[in-house]
């Protein structure tokens, strides 16, 4: 069978492969190469070695964006996962109206980042203006504003994953533990959470990479204001490319650093939590 399929490879592989080369492989390799070049458009690229990377690491705004992003990601990963897990626990406990709540909490996830940012800008400015304040005057408001928006958007998504995980745990496990005299707190830590590790792994991975890669909401809610103090890594890279003339090479170097960082973080996290997964 394999042989007869093989000769059909142009039809089966062709379209996707071609698009994959145009849309991913060529830009990726070009990006790697250009990070080592001085250029404004690709045509005038001149090889200069690691100079762009040196400049990127010396850029105070970039380092600030890194710290801001790291703090933001840490905060949202904890908040989103704890809250989503808690809601999932409540909703799998035969609460009247479960379906309506699930529908409601998941809904913001379908709304795009740009739209979400402007919806919340109105709400935050409406609240803050009562005290003669505004969202874009303080980095603190920007930070917590972003945290609220991202929690609002992602709790529902992670909740769905946690609910699916909770429903796949055989109820006999918890019943057996209860008969052995474990209270509900002990059951949570020794039965539910160890069995939930696959779901926890995936949710941590998603919230971690989503936090680091955040762009749309950052652009629409604060646009980095005040004074680029709420600029996250992705937005910093975007601004380096498109609002600083002659910095394209540095922008591309930052993008490579960003790529390595996201992949490394994702892999470390997967390794750490995968090792705690138990076989059922």
């Amino acid at each position: 069978m394999e042989k007869s399929i093989k000769s059909y490879f142009p039809i089966f592989l062709g379209p996707t492969f071609l698009a994959f080369i145009i849309g991913f492989i060529v830009p990726f390799l070009m990006g790697l190469y250009l990070s080592l070049c001085d250029f404004r458009t690709a045509a005038d690229a001149k090889f200069i070695g690691l100079g762009n990377f040196v400049k990127a690491f010396q850029d105070g705004e970039f380092l600030h964006a890194f710290v801001f992003t790291a703090l933001f990601t840490l905060t949202t990963v904890i908040l989103i996962n704890v809250l989503a897990f808690a809601v999932a626990m409540v909703l799998t406990n035969n609460v009247p109206g479960t379906n309506i709540f699930r529908t409601t909490f998941f809904m913001p996830n379908l709304i795009g980042g740009i739209v979400l940012g402007y919806i919340w800008q109105l709400v935050f400015n409406g609240i803050l203006s009562r005290y003669d304040l505004a969202l874009k005057i303080s980095a603190k408001f920007g930070f917590w504003g972003l945290v609220v928006v991202i929690c609002w958007q992602q709790i529902g998504y992670m909740m769905i994953i946690y609910i699916a995980g909770l429903q796949s745990i055989p109820s006999s496990l918890n019943e057996a533990a209860a008969i052995d005299g474990a209270n509900s707190w002990q059951r949570l830590w020794s039965v539910t959470i160890p069995n939930m590790m696959p779901s926890i792994t995936i949710c941590l991975f998603l919230t971690l990479t989503n936090g680091f890669k955040l762009f749309d909401q950052n652009l629409s809610l604060t646009a980095g204001e005040p004074m680029k103090q709420t600029e996250m890594l992705a937005l910093n890279i975007f601004n380096t490319f498109y609002s600083r003339v002659g910095y394209q090479g540095v922008g591309q170097a930052k993008a490579v650093i960003f790529f390595v960082l996201v992949v490394a973080l994702g892999l470390i996290q997967l390794k750490m939590t995968r090792s705690r997964e138990v076989q059922q």
Binding site: G23, F28, F241, Q252, A255, F258, F259
Partner: peptide, 11 residues
């Protein structure tokens, strides 16, 4: 796993 920023300019 590659973030979009990595390829956005060249794309």
């Amino acid at each position: 796993v590659v973030p979009f920023q990595m390829v956005m300019f060249t794309l």
